[in-house]
Amino acid sequence: MSLARQLPYFLAFLFLLGCQEQTLDSSAYLDEELDEMSIYHLPSEWHTQSGELIALEDLRGTPLVSVMIYTACKTACPRLVADMRHIETAVKSKTKKDIKYLMISIDPTNDTPDKLMQFAKDNQMTDDKWLFLQGTEESVRDFANILAVKYKQISPIDFSHSNIISVFDRNGVLQFQKEGLGMENDEIINKIISISK
């Protein structure tokens, strides 16, 4: 996709959050019953590993399990990915409900859809329940701030970041967070199953 085509989306994101002038009409048209704490109030658009442009809101209706990673990460991220796969396998054995697993890159400059796709293939995460997302520097920061995920770029290819897996219900409300690596996953698995009922 050319820069010229991406620019309007980027601008939209920049200004939308802060500057939308809502009339009564438009706020009534918007999701009136959406919970105040829903992430779907955050207007943002992302590229998936297939290069498709999606709005966060397109995911409404499906429980989400998300983690923030970057593909060049050699230390914690492989373990986070392993945790996600372990959780996904365990949840799948107990429920048939549709659940999406989001891997959000904190390095939108380097993690292009192609890189994300390669990462997905390398980790056998090609099923369409796995969504790898490339945002912009700003949309990533907003999303991280909703989750209280901290990160800092410490070199052109390395980031320091918190290891947090978050669970959202169908309306995008954060219901559970698991912090730290390689810990007991039973609690988060039970939470995902109860949310997806």
Binding site: T75, A76, C77, K152, I154, D158, S160, H161, N163
Partner: peptide
């Protein structure tokens, strides 16, 4: 386990 490369900062 909380942070990747936490010692660096």
């Amino acid at each position: 386990g909380l942070f990747c490369a936490s010692g660096a900062v």
